[in-house]
Design a protein around this nucleic acid. Sequence first.
DNA 1: CAATCACTTGACACCATGTCAAGTGCCGGG
DNA 2: CCCGGCACTTGACATGGTGTCAAGTGATTG
Lengths: 205, 205
Amino acid sequence: MSSAGGGGDPATRRRILDAAQQLITGRRGAEVTLAEVARAARVSRQALYLHFADRAALFLALVRHADAQRGLAAAIQRVADAPTGVAALREAVAMQSRMNPKIWPLARHFESVRRRDEAAERSWQDRMEGRLTGCRMGVARLAREGTLRRGLTPEVAADLLWTLTSLRTWEDLVLERGWSAKQYEKRLGDVLLMVLTNSGMTRAR
Amino acid sequence: MSSAGGGGDPATRRRILDAAQQLITGRRGAEVTLAEVARAARVSRQALYLHFADRAALFLALVRHADAQRGLAAAIQRVADAPTGVAALREAVAMQSRMNPKIWPLARHFESVRRRDEAAERSWQDRMEGRLTGCRMGVARLAREGTLRRGLTPEVAADLLWTLTSLRTWEDLVLERGWSAKQYEKRLGDVLLMVLTNSGMTRAR
DNA sequence: CAATCACTTGACACCATGTCAAGTGCCGGG
DNA sequence: CCCGGCACTTGACATGGTGTCAAGTGATTG
């Protein structure tokens, strides 16, 4: 029951999302209770339920909010606008490097929810499908330009690209292994070229 | 307070761990409550606290239990015994392919706990350090045998090997993208050779 | 002026974790 | 034989987070 989550003042809604984002970001993925979110947004705990059906819905909205705020669409456009497929690869890695630090805490939180919540799981799958589609387009472009490595089917190449540029890989290398953003961009870009293209290492940068 | 977790009959302890493992495995990483574990082990909920200090301690013991049961040490030995560094890479990938399906549900569960629990976090770091050490040894072997790719420092190579053979990468490719065990072994093995060694398989151009 | 909207206050039920106290049944040593 | 201790059970309870409900308040608007 209860309002599905449509009601409430949009400004308050944004205030809640901003507060939640800042709160979560400030804690590197640790737990955040709804009471804390409410307090941070200077709103009663019950007000959250005027805007979001439940906890999962709030964090779901949060991811979209962050995406929009960070200009995800524009960044993707920039990748698509790269002069060549190979340049697009480099640009895609750079995009991950820029966006992931902000998205990561939210995603972390999301992970713990998606097993319990149907809507969260679906939204997660959507996001994954979206990135995978982008990867397929990138691979198709390489194929069109004749730079896709021989013996690599587009489907496998897309899967590899998808995995190698995933948030998790970024997390492993940057957060766990301490690579700097620059190192991540350079080294992972090199790996991508080696794995996906037959041009090998074009002495870039 | 309370018993630190040493007390109780070892047989019962094993029964609890087995029940918990089966329960978790049967649900692809979804939630499991302690009451359910107790019921599955045909033991009172309170009995769990005779054997484990708390929830985190139980799941921690569970990972070790599964490792021992699956013969992790033996599998690692087999990798070390491979005739060449390149063969060791292939063997390591095969090991992941065999072990990960069993370990994954537990690891998944662990992930959700380690942010809240100091002991769990430490144990997790231990595990990671262990795997990283193994990767460093593998890379050192490649270097000794002169097959480590030129322009790749051992440290970076170890990080890449560590990430590419991680449970998460396996999860992405096998569970999410639907690669079969055979495909995972072949394709990821190929990628490893391409990225880490200069022998490469397809120097095609 | 009345109605409505957005939000607050202060309950409440539910459920999982973790604790406590008082048992029960069994087994070995005196 | 019986006593003490061990492993475990039963049933209660505190705590803390989520989600719900009902009765407000205060500002805006028709």
